[in-house]
Write a protein that binds this DNA or RNA. Structure first.
Lengths: 114, 114
DNA sequence: TTATATACATAAGAAACTTGGGTATATTTT
DNA sequence: AAAATATACCCAAGTTTCTTATGTATATAA
């Protein structure tokens, strides 16, 4: 991923969620979007991204479609039906995990507060 | 960790933070505390915990002290000075990571809001 | 007496990532 | 014009972290 050695399976969730919002994205675009959304703090490396995309495709959660743009090949990914189902599952898993993390690390934390 | 295969590296932060709050804890106690704080949702497995404790000790962030309690051996861990410094570093790393996650996954999210 | 709880530990394997390559075209900088 | 950066894909070796499966030992509950 980047300087952060955190996250393990959250990369998959990030990919799926971005594709839910954007319909079609190609790999490089995903890295740029994440960099932009986090003001450069999270940089998804290609070594992490492409294997993750291929795995999600192999699992039937994504489909691909190749386009030529200015003599360059772009591989667009989009959610399959199963992929659409998985987004919500993965999202609530992650949100609940983050909630539990807060409960452990911040004793005063309560859901619904900052 | 448990059913969650999420976020790697956060176990170290959890251990350090609990020890900051509790001064001395032994391994089994840590697993129980986490289970309790998360209402059983996160269960730290021994296969994950003990290697992590040993690693933190080897890095000089924790020291140990063995006690006999009812014919049972307990190995108490506590923070070293370096360990105390590391807690804040690891905590702000994790909090900033979680913030970035929110920015990616929840476009409307802003720090300070639920 | 069998199972569960307490309490430590290790070891093999899986999974996710980093690092470091490789290929190729387009644009910007020197 | 040459060099560097940006765009765009990919793979493979190695590291780290975790899971799963064991092993040891005592205490308590079913």
């Amino acid at each position: 991923m980047s300087n952060n050695n955190l996250i393990k399976g959250s990369l998959q969730t990030i990919i799926l969620k971005l594709l839910e919002e954007n319909d079609k994205m190609y790999g490089y675009e995903i890295t740029q979007r994440v960099k932009e959304l986090t003001e450069g703090e999270i940089k998804i490396t290609e070594g992490a991204l492409y294997p993750a995309l291929h795995k999600l495709e192999a699992e039937g959660l994504l489909t691909t479609e190749i386009q030529q743009v200015d003599n360059r090949v772009r591989k667009y990914y989009s959610l399959t039906k199963n992929g659409q189902k998985e987004v919500s599952a993965k999202m609530s898993e992650l949100q609940s995990f983050v909630g539990n993390l807060q409960r452990i690390l911040d004793p005063d934390w309560k859901p619904g507060l900052a």
